[in-house]
Simulated assay, not measured.
Amino acid sequence: MAQINPHINFNGNAEEALNFYKSVFGGEFSKIIRFKDIASEEFPIPDKEAHKIMHIALPIKQNFLFANDILEIMGRVNENENRSKIAITAESKEEAYKLFNGLSAGGQIEMPIDENPDGTYFAMFRDKYGIEWMVKFDPKHKGE
Rank of each mutant, 00 (worst) to 15 (best):
M54V: 11
K36S: 09
I70R: 10
F35H: 05
E15D: 12
A123W: 08
K142V: 15
K31W: 13
E110Y: 08
E16F: 04
H7N: 00
E110N: 10
I73M: 15
F35V: 06
F35A: 04
A2T: 09
I4G: 07
K140P: 13
S92R: 00
H55K: 08
F137V: 04
M1R: 15
S40W: 00
H7C: 00
V77N: 02
G12L: 05
N13P: 12
Y121V: 11
S84R: 00
L18T: 04
E72Q: 13
A14K: 07
L58S: 07
Y121K: 05
M134C: 13
R83N: 13
G143Q: 08
N63E: 01
K85I: 14
E42G: 13
T120H: 01
H51N: 11
E49G: 11
F29A: 05
L58R: 02
H55L: 01
I38V: 15
G26N: 08
A96G: 03
E94Q: 11
V24F: 07
I45Y: 00
I56F: 05
S30K: 09
R34N: 02
H141W: 15
K93V: 03
I56D: 05
H55R: 11
K48H: 03
N63Q: 07
G130Y: 02
D47N: 08
A50H: 06
G106H: 09
N101G: 13
N9Y: 02
I86N: 04
I60P: 02
E132C: 14
E41Q: 08
G12F: 04
F10K: 04
A14Q: 09
D114S: 15
P46Y: 05
M74F: 08
K136G: 15
F35D: 04
Q3N: 11
M134G: 10
A39Y: 01
F100Y: 07
D47G: 12
Y97F: 14
P59Y: 06
E81S: 07
F20Q: 04
I45N: 10
K48A: 07
A96P: 01
E95M: 02
F29Q: 05
S23T: 06
L65P: 03
M111L: 09
E79I: 13
N101I: 11
G12R: 01
I60T: 06
G130A: 13
M111W: 00
E41W: 02
N116Q: 15
K85E: 14
H7P: 00
Y129H: 00
F100E: 11
V77Y: 09
A87F: 10
G12D: 03
S30V: 00
I32C: 10
P112A: 14
I8W: 06
F137S: 02
G102Q: 03
I56A: 01
L103M: 07
A57Q: 12
E144I: 06
K48F: 02
F29R: 05
K136M: 15
R76Q: 09
H141S: 15
V77I: 07
I53C: 05
T89R: 07
K85N: 14
A2Q: 09
Y97A: 15
